[in-house]
């Protein structure tokens, strides 16, 4: 099972399908897991629909961490696999994952 670890910056757990996002035009449904290098304001509506946010970089006070806490959804930043590959290089659209925002863990439950 593929597992990514990083810094958990907003508590809670969520399970859903990954959507790799670069801007607001990405296809995204309520309850999807937003996966991106780092969030930007263009993703505002998607963040409101996301069950969790996973980013390649960032820390406790980075933008995705702050807004995840406000939205009440889990967030893991600086997420990498055991080989050091960032989340956007490991996770694919449609993969089902479980995000633990307290432990800072993203578990791949099944591939797309």
């Amino acid at each position: 099972m593929t597992t990514l670890t990083g810094q958990g910056t907003s508590q809670g757990t969520a399970t859903g399908k990954c959507r790799l996002v670069e801007d607001h035009t990405a296809a995204f449904s309520e309850g999807d897991i937003l996966v991106t290098r780092i969030t930007n304001p263009g993703m505002v509506t998607l963040m409101g629909k996301a069950a969790a946010i996973v980013c390649d970089i960032g820390g406790l006070t980075s933008h995705p961490s702050i807004v995840s806490r406000e939205l009440g959804i889990p967030c893991v930043v600086s997420a990498k696999d055991a080989a050091g590959k960032p989340a956007t290089a490991v996770l694919k659209d449609g993969m089902r994952v479980k995000v633990d925002g307290e432990a800072g863990i993203v578990e791949v439950l099944d591939d797309a």
């Binding site: 930007n40 304001p41 993703m43 505002v44 963040m47 409101g48 933008h63 702050i66 807004v67 406000e70 939205l71």
Partner: peptide, 8 residues
């Protein structure tokens, strides 16, 4: 979140 992102 909307206010925050707009501020950014």
């Amino acid at each position: 979140n909307a206010c925050y992102q707009l501020s950014y």
